[in-house]
Write a protein that binds this DNA or RNA. Structure first.
Lengths: 156, 156
DNA sequence: TTAACTTTGACTAATATTGACTATTATTAT
DNA sequence: ATAATAATAGTCAATATTAGTCAAAGTTAA
Protein backbone atom coordinates (compact mmCIF):
# COMPACT_ATOMS: atom_id res chain seq x y z
CA UNK A 1 0.00 0.00 0.00
CA UNK A 2 2.95 2.35 0.14
CA UNK A 3 4.24 4.77 -2.38
CA UNK A 4 4.01 2.67 -5.43
CA UNK A 5 2.49 5.41 -7.47
CA UNK A 6 1.40 8.99 -7.07
CA UNK A 7 -2.19 8.09 -6.35
CA UNK A 8 -1.14 5.91 -3.43
CA UNK A 9 1.10 8.64 -2.10
CA UNK A 10 -1.63 11.23 -2.29
CA UNK A 11 -4.02 8.81 -0.64
CA UNK A 12 -1.59 8.24 2.20
CA UNK A 13 -0.99 11.93 2.60
CA UNK A 14 -4.66 12.71 2.91
CA UNK A 15 -5.34 9.82 5.23
CA UNK A 16 -2.51 10.83 7.47
CA UNK A 17 -4.16 14.18 7.97
CA UNK A 18 -7.53 12.52 8.41
CA UNK A 19 -6.08 10.35 11.15
CA UNK A 20 -5.90 13.43 13.31
CA UNK A 21 -8.85 15.51 12.24
CA UNK A 22 -12.30 14.38 11.25
CA UNK A 23 -12.22 16.30 8.03
CA UNK A 24 -9.92 18.12 5.71
CA UNK A 25 -10.46 20.80 3.20
CA UNK A 26 -8.08 21.01 0.32
CA UNK A 27 -7.62 23.18 -2.68
CA UNK A 28 -7.33 20.84 -5.62
CA UNK A 29 -4.66 22.78 -7.46
CA UNK A 30 -2.51 23.08 -4.36
CA UNK A 31 -2.43 19.37 -3.75
CA UNK A 32 -1.78 18.77 -7.41
CA UNK A 33 1.15 21.13 -7.30
CA UNK A 34 2.43 19.64 -4.09
CA UNK A 35 2.60 16.21 -5.70
CA UNK A 36 3.48 17.46 -9.10
CA UNK A 37 0.54 16.01 -10.94
CA UNK A 38 -2.40 17.30 -12.91
CA UNK A 39 -5.39 18.50 -10.89
CA UNK A 40 -7.72 15.85 -12.24
CA UNK A 41 -5.58 13.21 -10.62
CA UNK A 42 -6.93 14.41 -7.32
CA UNK A 43 -10.38 13.55 -8.57
CA UNK A 44 -9.15 10.13 -9.52
CA UNK A 45 -7.69 9.53 -6.09
CA UNK A 46 -10.88 10.63 -4.42
CA UNK A 47 -13.08 8.60 -6.70
CA UNK A 48 -11.13 5.41 -6.19
CA UNK A 49 -10.08 5.73 -2.56
CA UNK A 50 -12.42 7.99 -0.66
CA UNK A 51 -15.74 6.38 -1.41
CA UNK A 52 -18.69 6.19 0.92
CA UNK A 53 -18.19 2.45 1.12
CA UNK A 54 -14.88 3.15 2.80
CA UNK A 55 -16.43 5.68 5.09
CA UNK A 56 -15.62 8.95 3.43
CA UNK A 57 -17.94 11.74 2.51
CA UNK A 58 -16.76 14.20 -0.10
CA UNK A 59 -18.14 17.62 -0.82
CA UNK A 60 -16.79 20.39 -2.98
CA UNK A 61 -17.38 23.83 -4.27
CA UNK A 62 -16.10 25.50 -7.43
CA UNK A 63 -15.33 29.12 -8.10
CA UNK A 64 -13.38 31.59 -6.01
CA UNK A 65 -12.52 30.12 -2.65
CA UNK A 66 -13.46 26.70 -3.94
CA UNK A 67 -12.45 23.56 -2.08
CA UNK A 68 -12.75 19.83 -1.78
CA UNK A 69 -13.76 18.61 1.63
CA UNK A 70 -13.24 15.04 2.77
CA UNK A 71 -14.91 13.84 5.90
CA UNK A 72 -14.54 10.59 7.72
CA UNK A 73 -17.89 9.18 8.75
CA UNK A 74 -18.92 6.41 11.05
CA UNK A 75 -20.31 3.49 9.11
CA UNK A 76 -23.26 1.70 10.59
CA UNK A 77 -23.73 -2.00 11.10
CA UNK A 78 -26.33 -2.35 8.40
CA UNK A 79 -23.95 -1.89 5.56
CA UNK A 80 -23.80 -5.50 4.50
CA UNK A 81 -27.53 -5.54 4.14
CA UNK A 82 -27.38 -2.27 2.27
CA UNK A 83 -24.83 -3.71 -0.13
CA UNK A 84 -27.06 -6.68 -0.74
CA UNK A 85 -30.04 -4.49 -1.36
CA UNK A 86 -28.14 -2.31 -3.79
CA UNK A 87 -27.08 -5.39 -5.68
CA UNK A 88 -30.62 -6.64 -5.69
CA UNK A 89 -31.96 -3.41 -7.11
CA UNK A 90 -29.55 -3.45 -9.99
CA UNK A 91 -30.33 -1.19 -12.90
CA UNK A 92 -34.05 -0.86 -12.40
CA UNK A 93 -36.83 -1.73 -10.01
CA UNK A 94 -40.62 -1.56 -10.12
CA UNK A 95 -42.78 0.03 -7.51
CA UNK A 96 -43.92 -3.22 -5.97
CA UNK A 97 -40.39 -4.43 -5.33
CA UNK A 98 -39.44 -1.01 -4.08
CA UNK A 99 -42.26 -1.17 -1.59
CA UNK A 100 -41.07 -4.54 -0.36
CA UNK A 101 -37.58 -3.20 0.04
CA UNK A 102 -38.70 -0.18 2.02
CA UNK A 103 -40.85 -2.42 4.13
CA UNK A 104 -37.83 -4.52 4.97
CA UNK A 105 -35.86 -1.44 5.94
CA UNK A 106 -38.68 -0.51 8.23
CA UNK A 107 -39.05 -3.99 9.70
CA UNK A 108 -35.34 -4.06 10.41
CA UNK A 109 -35.62 -0.67 12.05
CA UNK A 110 -33.15 0.95 9.72
CA UNK A 111 -35.70 3.66 9.08
CA UNK A 112 -38.77 4.83 10.87
CA UNK A 113 -42.30 4.90 9.63
CA UNK A 114 -42.27 8.54 8.65
CA UNK A 115 -39.02 8.10 6.81
CA UNK A 116 -40.29 5.04 5.04
CA UNK A 117 -43.27 6.99 3.83
CA UNK A 118 -41.01 9.72 2.57
CA UNK A 119 -39.03 7.24 0.54
CA UNK A 120 -42.20 5.78 -0.88
CA UNK A 121 -43.44 9.22 -1.81
CA UNK A 122 -40.17 9.93 -3.58
CA UNK A 123 -40.25 6.70 -5.54
CA UNK A 124 -43.94 6.33 -6.29
CA UNK A 125 -45.23 5.88 -9.79
CA UNK A 126 -47.05 9.16 -9.54
CA UNK A 127 -43.88 11.03 -8.76
CA UNK A 128 -41.68 9.34 -11.32
CA UNK A 129 -44.05 8.90 -14.23
CA UNK A 130 -42.32 11.44 -16.39
CA UNK A 131 -41.19 9.21 -19.19
CA UNK A 132 -41.49 5.61 -20.30
CA UNK A 133 -41.71 2.70 -17.92
CA UNK A 134 -38.10 1.70 -18.34
CA UNK A 135 -36.77 5.11 -17.48
CA UNK A 136 -39.11 5.27 -14.52
CA UNK A 137 -37.75 2.05 -13.11
CA UNK A 138 -34.20 3.14 -13.71
CA UNK A 139 -34.88 6.34 -11.86
CA UNK A 140 -36.46 4.50 -8.99
CA UNK A 141 -33.37 2.33 -8.81
CA UNK A 142 -31.07 5.36 -8.76
CA UNK A 143 -33.04 7.11 -6.09
CA UNK A 144 -33.23 4.07 -3.87
CA UNK A 145 -29.55 3.39 -4.23
CA UNK A 146 -28.78 7.00 -3.40
CA UNK A 147 -30.90 6.68 -0.29
CA UNK A 148 -29.36 3.38 0.74
CA UNK A 149 -25.91 4.85 0.41
CA UNK A 150 -26.95 7.67 2.69
CA UNK A 151 -28.12 5.21 5.26
CA UNK A 152 -24.63 3.80 5.52
CA UNK A 153 -23.31 6.27 7.97
CA UNK A 154 -24.15 8.24 11.01
CA UNK A 155 -24.45 11.99 11.01
CA UNK A 156 -23.84 14.34 13.81
CA UNK B 1 -20.79 27.75 5.22
CA UNK B 2 -17.53 29.25 6.25
CA UNK B 3 -15.46 32.09 5.03
CA UNK B 4 -13.50 30.87 2.09
CA UNK B 5 -14.48 33.81 -0.07
CA UNK B 6 -15.85 37.28 0.45
CA UNK B 7 -19.39 36.33 -0.46
CA UNK B 8 -19.47 33.66 2.22
CA UNK B 9 -18.07 36.07 4.75
CA UNK B 10 -20.63 38.71 3.95
CA UNK B 11 -23.36 36.10 4.11
CA UNK B 12 -22.21 34.98 7.53
CA UNK B 13 -21.98 38.54 8.75
CA UNK B 14 -25.52 39.35 7.73
CA UNK B 15 -26.92 36.11 9.07
CA UNK B 16 -25.25 36.64 12.35
CA UNK B 17 -27.10 39.88 12.75
CA UNK B 18 -30.31 38.27 11.53
CA UNK B 19 -29.95 35.62 14.17
CA UNK B 20 -30.77 38.24 16.76
CA UNK B 21 -33.16 40.55 15.02
CA UNK B 22 -35.89 39.71 12.57
CA UNK B 23 -34.70 42.22 10.03
CA UNK B 24 -31.67 44.19 9.11
CA UNK B 25 -31.25 47.36 7.15
CA UNK B 26 -27.97 48.04 5.50
CA UNK B 27 -26.44 50.67 3.33
CA UNK B 28 -24.96 48.88 0.36
CA UNK B 29 -21.88 51.04 0.01
CA UNK B 30 -21.05 50.76 3.69
CA UNK B 31 -21.08 47.00 3.66
CA UNK B 32 -19.07 47.01 0.47
CA UNK B 33 -16.51 49.24 2.09
CA UNK B 34 -16.49 47.18 5.26
CA UNK B 35 -15.59 44.08 3.30
CA UNK B 36 -13.50 45.85 0.75
CA UNK B 37 -15.47 44.83 -2.30
CA UNK B 38 -17.48 46.54 -5.00
CA UNK B 39 -21.07 47.44 -4.11
CA UNK B 40 -22.58 45.13 -6.66
CA UNK B 41 -21.11 42.20 -4.82
CA UNK B 42 -23.67 42.85 -2.12
CA UNK B 43 -26.34 42.30 -4.73
CA UNK B 44 -24.68 39.07 -5.69
CA UNK B 45 -24.64 37.85 -2.13
CA UNK B 46 -28.28 38.73 -1.67
CA UNK B 47 -29.32 37.20 -4.93
CA UNK B 48 -27.60 33.91 -4.25
CA UNK B 49 -28.08 33.57 -0.50
CA UNK B 50 -31.07 35.52 0.66
CA UNK B 51 -33.75 34.19 -1.65
CA UNK B 52 -37.37 33.67 -0.77
CA UNK B 53 -36.73 29.93 -0.99
CA UNK B 54 -34.44 30.33 1.94
CA UNK B 55 -36.95 32.37 3.82
CA UNK B 56 -35.73 35.90 3.25
CA UNK B 57 -37.56 38.88 1.94
CA UNK B 58 -35.51 41.71 0.52
CA UNK B 59 -36.65 45.25 -0.04
CA UNK B 60 -34.66 48.31 -0.96
CA UNK B 61 -34.81 51.94 -1.75
CA UNK B 62 -32.47 54.06 -3.85
CA UNK B 63 -31.59 57.71 -3.54
CA UNK B 64 -30.56 59.65 -0.48
CA UNK B 65 -31.07 57.64 2.66
CA UNK B 66 -31.42 54.53 0.55
CA UNK B 67 -31.12 51.09 2.09
CA UNK B 68 -31.40 47.39 1.59
CA UNK B 69 -33.61 45.64 4.04
CA UNK B 70 -33.45 41.92 4.63
CA UNK B 71 -36.19 40.28 6.56
CA UNK B 72 -36.56 36.78 7.80
CA UNK B 73 -40.02 35.60 6.91
CA UNK B 74 -42.19 32.84 8.19
CA UNK B 75 -44.19 31.10 5.53
CA UNK B 76 -47.28 31.18 7.69
CA UNK B 77 -48.83 27.89 8.66
CA UNK B 78 -47.66 24.62 7.25
CA UNK B 79 -50.32 24.20 4.65
CA UNK B 80 -49.65 27.55 3.09
CA UNK B 81 -45.95 26.92 3.28
CA UNK B 82 -46.27 23.71 1.35
CA UNK B 83 -48.33 25.41 -1.31
CA UNK B 84 -45.88 28.24 -1.49
CA UNK B 85 -42.97 25.90 -1.81
CA UNK B 86 -44.61 23.89 -4.54
CA UNK B 87 -45.20 27.09 -6.40
CA UNK B 88 -41.61 28.14 -5.93
CA UNK B 89 -40.35 24.86 -7.28
CA UNK B 90 -42.28 25.11 -10.49
CA UNK B 91 -41.34 22.85 -13.36
CA UNK B 92 -37.73 22.35 -12.46
CA UNK B 93 -35.24 23.15 -9.73
CA UNK B 94 -31.49 22.90 -9.36
CA UNK B 95 -29.70 21.20 -6.53
CA UNK B 96 -28.70 24.39 -4.83
CA UNK B 97 -32.22 25.69 -4.55
CA UNK B 98 -33.45 22.27 -3.53
CA UNK B 99 -30.93 22.24 -0.71
CA UNK B 100 -32.12 25.63 0.44
CA UNK B 101 -35.70 24.44 0.39
CA UNK B 102 -35.00 21.33 2.41
CA UNK B 103 -33.00 23.41 4.83
CA UNK B 104 -36.00 25.64 5.28
CA UNK B 105 -38.24 22.66 5.91
CA UNK B 106 -35.82 21.51 8.54
CA UNK B 107 -35.46 24.95 10.12
CA UNK B 108 -39.21 25.24 10.35
CA UNK B 109 -39.37 21.80 11.92
CA UNK B 110 -41.58 20.35 9.24
CA UNK B 111 -39.15 17.50 8.85
CA UNK B 112 -36.42 16.10 11.03
CA UNK B 113 -32.76 15.86 10.33
CA UNK B 114 -32.73 12.30 9.13
CA UNK B 115 -35.68 12.92 6.90
CA UNK B 116 -34.03 15.98 5.47
CA UNK B 117 -30.97 13.96 4.65
CA UNK B 118 -33.08 11.33 2.97
CA UNK B 119 -34.70 13.93 0.80
CA UNK B 120 -31.33 15.35 -0.10
CA UNK B 121 -30.06 11.92 -0.98
CA UNK B 122 -33.06 11.33 -3.20
CA UNK B 123 -32.60 14.61 -5.03
CA UNK B 124 -28.84 14.94 -5.26
CA UNK B 125 -27.10 15.42 -8.54
CA UNK B 126 -25.34 12.14 -8.10
CA UNK B 127 -28.61 10.31 -7.79
CA UNK B 128 -30.47 12.05 -10.58
CA UNK B 129 -27.77 12.52 -13.18
CA UNK B 130 -29.18 9.94 -15.54
CA UNK B 131 -29.94 12.13 -18.50
CA UNK B 132 -29.52 15.75 -19.49
CA UNK B 133 -29.58 18.62 -17.08
CA UNK B 134 -33.10 19.72 -17.89
CA UNK B 135 -34.57 16.33 -17.21
CA UNK B 136 -32.60 16.12 -14.01
CA UNK B 137 -34.07 19.36 -12.75
CA UNK B 138 -37.55 18.34 -13.81
CA UNK B 139 -37.19 15.11 -11.91
CA UNK B 140 -35.94 16.90 -8.87
CA UNK B 141 -38.98 19.13 -9.01
CA UNK B 142 -41.30 16.15 -9.34
CA UNK B 143 -39.75 14.31 -6.46
CA UNK B 144 -39.77 17.32 -4.18
CA UNK B 145 -43.36 18.13 -5.02
CA UNK B 146 -44.28 14.52 -4.45
CA UNK B 147 -42.69 14.65 -1.05
CA UNK B 148 -44.25 17.98 -0.15
CA UNK B 149 -47.67 16.74 -1.08
CA UNK B 150 -47.03 13.69 1.00
CA UNK B 151 -46.15 15.89 3.96
CA UNK B 152 -49.58 17.46 3.79
CA UNK B 153 -51.25 14.50 5.34
CA UNK B 154 -48.31 12.80 6.94
CA UNK B 155 -47.90 15.46 9.57
CA UNK B 156 -51.18 14.90 11.35
C1' DT C 1 -1.01 -11.08 -23.24
C1' DT C 2 -4.42 -8.93 -21.46
C1' DA C 3 -7.21 -6.71 -18.12
C1' DA C 4 -7.08 -3.53 -14.58
C1' DC C 5 -5.26 0.49 -12.93
C1' DT C 6 -2.98 5.08 -13.45
C1' DT C 7 -1.74 9.34 -15.67
C1' DT C 8 -2.71 13.16 -18.56
C1' DG C 9 -4.96 17.03 -20.62
C1' DA C 10 -8.60 19.15 -23.29
C1' DC C 11 -12.94 20.49 -22.53
C1' DT C 12 -16.93 21.65 -19.41
C1' DA C 13 -19.43 23.52 -15.40
C1' DA C 14 -20.09 26.15 -11.31
C1' DT C 15 -19.26 30.06 -8.62
C1' DA C 16 -17.25 34.55 -7.55
C1' DT C 17 -15.55 39.20 -8.67
C1' DT C 18 -15.54 43.45 -11.06
C1' DG C 19 -17.01 47.60 -13.24
C1' DA C 20 -19.51 50.21 -16.64
C1' DC C 21 -23.88 51.62 -17.31
C1' DT C 22 -28.81 52.35 -15.73
C1' DA C 23 -32.70 53.52 -12.60
C1' DT C 24 -34.66 55.61 -8.70
C1' DT C 25 -35.16 58.84 -5.03
C1' DA C 26 -33.84 62.91 -2.35
C1' DT C 27 -32.02 67.45 -2.09
C1' DT C 28 -30.82 71.88 -3.77
C1' DA C 29 -30.97 75.82 -6.80
C1' DT C 30 -33.72 78.75 -9.72
C1' DA D 1 -42.91 74.35 -8.78
C1' DT D 2 -39.35 72.78 -11.69
C1' DA D 3 -34.96 71.63 -13.06
C1' DA D 4 -30.51 70.26 -11.98
C1' DT D 5 -27.68 67.63 -9.14
C1' DA D 6 -26.40 64.33 -5.71
C1' DA D 7 -26.91 60.03 -3.58
C1' DT D 8 -28.26 55.97 -3.60
C1' DA D 9 -29.24 50.88 -5.39
C1' DG D 10 -29.85 47.54 -9.66
C1' DT D 11 -28.43 45.01 -13.86
C1' DC D 12 -25.66 42.68 -16.78
C1' DA D 13 -21.96 40.95 -19.08
C1' DA D 14 -16.96 40.22 -19.04
C1' DT D 15 -13.48 38.03 -16.59
C1' DA D 16 -11.45 35.25 -12.98
C1' DT D 17 -11.21 31.27 -10.14
C1' DT D 18 -12.01 27.32 -8.97
C1' DA D 19 -13.53 21.89 -9.53
C1' DG D 20 -15.58 17.95 -12.66
C1' DT D 21 -15.75 14.78 -16.67
C1' DC D 22 -14.18 11.86 -19.96
C1' DA D 23 -11.53 9.43 -22.93
C1' DA D 24 -6.98 8.53 -24.80
C1' DA D 25 -2.54 6.98 -23.68
C1' DG D 26 0.62 4.80 -20.57
C1' DT D 27 1.83 1.33 -16.95
C1' DT D 28 1.53 -2.72 -14.19
C1' DA D 29 0.21 -7.11 -12.54
C1' DA D 30 -1.99 -11.66 -13.12
Amino acid sequence: MQGRNISDIIEAYLKQILAESERIEIKRSEIAELFNCVPSQINYVIKTRFTIQRGYLVQSKRGGGGYIRIEKVKLLDDRDMLDTMIQLIGEQINQRDALALVQKLYDDQVIERKEANLVLAATSHETLAVADRNLEEQLRAHILIGILNHLRYERE
